[in-house]
Amino acid sequence: MTHDRLPPPRPAPDPLDDEWVGLLGEPFAAAWCQAAGRPAILRERVLDRVTRSARASRAFVTVRQKDAPLDALADGVHARTLYEATSRQLRPGEPRRVRIVELAAGACWRPELRDAEQSAWLPIAGELQLGELRLAPHDFHLRPAASGPAVATSPTGARFYLREAPGSPAADAVTVRDAEAGWDDFAPGIKRRVLWAGPGGEAALLYHALPGATVPRHGHGHDEECLMLEGEVFLDDLLLRQGEYQLAPAGTVHGGVSTDTGLLLFAHGDLALDLRPE
């Protein structure tokens, strides 16, 4: 079953919907203050929650689309850098570089890939031609280290995720077709597809979740990347929307993950979640 046959995410709720605006106005606002006993109590609680949430989120790298400018790489080729390592000593599962690349129709790009690194490719929109290999949206391809130069083209224009990280030249190339791959049950309301599983429990995955699905508190043995393909998700108190990205470094903890809309999400991190008690 492909993700096209699974229920699509719901539209995000409108924060200015008339029903909600009415609840935020009078006489409800005054009633909330009276219920709290002292008007300052509610304000103090909100500020405390915001402060604690902001402090916790500093451990993560979050990239909004509006904050990641497009850089020109060649004629008809632009990229947004989502993550770039600042140290030669990488954490478990840490990528050296992650980008969203946009190819105009007919453009040709030869990325400078290091021989000691593997590259993961996931088209988000349009068809991507990688040498003789043609990839459709949500197909996945892993090129082992020392695979030689790669030439990316697109007859229609394409946008794709490209991850570069240390890898073994002895590893096999992996290609997973969205139209042919199935989904495994992962948790209530959540299915997942294992795209690649490497040594030490590291993996690349697709997750499909129904509205209201949750994942409890969990730690990260490897860096965990989340790229929103469709829908929205709360990572703790942080809302990640379509096209946005977060990297949680190895050793960090997510207090909880939930979605109101449902989602389709690409992740690179632990194959088995390290669930933690509350």
Rank of each mutant, 00 (worst) to 15 (best):
D139S: 10
L135M: 03
R97G: 01
Q129R: 14
D270W: 00
L70N: 12
L122H: 07
P11C: 04
A267F: 02
E112T: 14
P15V: 08
A36M: 11
R143A: 15
A171Q: 00
A74F: 08
P69Y: 13
K66N: 07
A125S: 14
V253E: 11
L113W: 03
R5M: 08
I41N: 10
I41S: 09
F60Y: 15
S147R: 05
R217C: 14
G148V: 12
L240T: 09
S57K: 06
R52S: 07
T175S: 14
A30H: 08
T156V: 15
A145K: 00
P27R: 09
L113M: 05
V215N: 05
D178T: 03
Y245C: 07
L210S: 14
V77L: 01
L162P: 01
R52V: 05
R96S: 07
E244G: 12
P15M: 09
H3T: 09
G76A: 08
L206F: 15
P199K: 08
L275I: 13
G157Y: 02
A203G: 08
P137Q: 07
L128Q: 02
F140P: 05
E180R: 08
A158N: 05
R177L: 11
W121R: 02
D71G: 01
G37M: 03
A158D: 04
P11H: 06
L271N: 01
R177E: 10
E230M: 10
D75N: 06
R193A: 01
L133H: 09
A107K: 01
F140R: 05
L135D: 02
A181Y: 01
E180W: 04
L82R: 10
R88K: 09
L247A: 08
S119L: 12
A79C: 10
A85T: 14
G212R: 09
A136W: 00
H208L: 06
D274N: 10
F186L: 15
P155A: 15
G256Y: 09
T252D: 13
T86I: 02
E44H: 10
H138E: 09
E225S: 11
P111I: 09
R110S: 12
G182V: 02
P11T: 04
I190L: 07
A125D: 14
S119W: 05
Y207A: 10
A107I: 02
F266M: 11
E180V: 08
A203H: 08
A72R: 13
D115A: 13
E127P: 02
P199A: 13
W32Y: 13
R91T: 06
A54F: 03
P277Y: 04
R10Q: 15
P111L: 07
R5T: 15
V98C: 11
D67Q: 12
G25R: 11
V151P: 00
P211S: 08
A272S: 03
H218S: 05
L90Y: 03
G22Y: 06
L205Y: 02
T156G: 15
L235A: 12
